[in-house]
Amino acid sequence: RSRTTFTAEQLEELEKAFERTHYPDIYTREELAQRTKLTEARVQVWFSNRRARWRK
């Protein structure tokens, strides 16, 4: 699998969701996946990476 490139629109959606919760449940992730046209797995990994960046 090659590296996922996120569009500005996708990042906006993901960042907005991250402001609400750092640990979205499966329903939230599924909804985000549909809205951003990404897979739920990509959304999950993005949140994991985003939390790592947030901790630094």
Rank of each mutant, 00 (worst) to 15 (best):
F18K: 01
A52Y: 07
L14G: 01
A52P: 00
R29A: 08
I26D: 14
T39S: 13
T39D: 12
R29Q: 10
R20H: 08
E9R: 12
R55D: 14
R3C: 12
L38K: 00
A17T: 14
E31Y: 09
F6Q: 02
R35L: 10
L11C: 00
Y27V: 13
F47M: 10
E19C: 09
E19Y: 03
Y23N: 11
R51H: 04
W46D: 00
T5K: 11
A8V: 07
R55E: 07
W54Y: 13
E30N: 14
W54A: 10
K56N: 11
L14I: 01
D25K: 02
S2A: 11
R3N: 12
A8S: 12
K37W: 05
K16Q: 07
R50M: 10
K16E: 12
E15F: 04
T36F: 06
E15L: 02
T39V: 05
A33M: 12
R29K: 02
F6G: 03
Q44K: 12
E15A: 04
T21A: 10
S48Y: 08
R50P: 00
E9M: 12
E15G: 02
K16A: 10
R1T: 15
S2W: 04
E9W: 10
E31R: 10
E19F: 06
Q10L: 02
R55N: 04
Y23R: 04
R35H: 02
A41R: 06
V43W: 05
N49I: 06
R29V: 14
T28C: 10
F47L: 02
W46A: 01
R3V: 14
W46L: 01
S48I: 04
E13Q: 10
D25M: 02
L38M: 13
R42H: 13
A8C: 05
R42A: 15
E31I: 10
R20C: 14
I26F: 13
R1G: 11
S48R: 12
L38E: 02
R51M: 01
L32T: 03
L11F: 06
T5I: 10
E13N: 04
N49P: 04
T7H: 03
L11Q: 06
I26C: 11
Q34K: 14
R1D: 12
R35S: 07
F18D: 01
E30V: 06
E15D: 02
R20E: 12
Q44A: 15
P24S: 01
E9D: 06
A41S: 13
E19R: 09
L11H: 11
L14K: 00
I26V: 14
E30K: 10
A8D: 15
E40W: 04
L14E: 00
F18A: 01
A17Q: 15
P24E: 11
F18M: 02
V43M: 03
V43L: 06
I26K: 13
A33V: 08
R50F: 04
R20I: 09
Y27W: 11
T28L: 14
T36C: 12
L32N: 00
K16R: 09
T7L: 04
A8Q: 12
R51K: 00
R50G: 03
E9F: 08
A52H: 04
A41G: 12
E40R: 05
T4V: 11
T5N: 15
T36R: 01
S2I: 11
V45M: 09
L32P: 02
F47C: 00
T21G: 10
R55V: 07
Y27C: 11
A8I: 07
L38S: 13
P24V: 02
Q34P: 00
R35D: 06
T7N: 06
E30H: 11
F6N: 06
E15W: 01
K56G: 15
K16P: 03
R53F: 11
Q44W: 05
E40P: 04
T28W: 05
T21S: 12
D25A: 04
P24I: 04
R3T: 15
A41W: 09
A8H: 03
T5W: 09
E12N: 13
L32I: 07
Q44R: 09
R55I: 09
T36H: 05
R20Y: 08
A41Y: 06
N49Y: 08
L38Q: 04
R51Q: 02
R50S: 02
E12S: 11
E12G: 10
T36S: 02
Y23D: 11
H22Q: 14
R51W: 01
S48V: 07
E12K: 14
F47Y: 06
R51Y: 02
R51V: 08
T21R: 04
T4Y: 07
N49K: 07
E40V: 10
H22E: 06
T39Y: 00
F18V: 01
H22L: 04
T7M: 07
E13C: 13
F6K: 10
K37M: 09
V43R: 02
L14H: 03
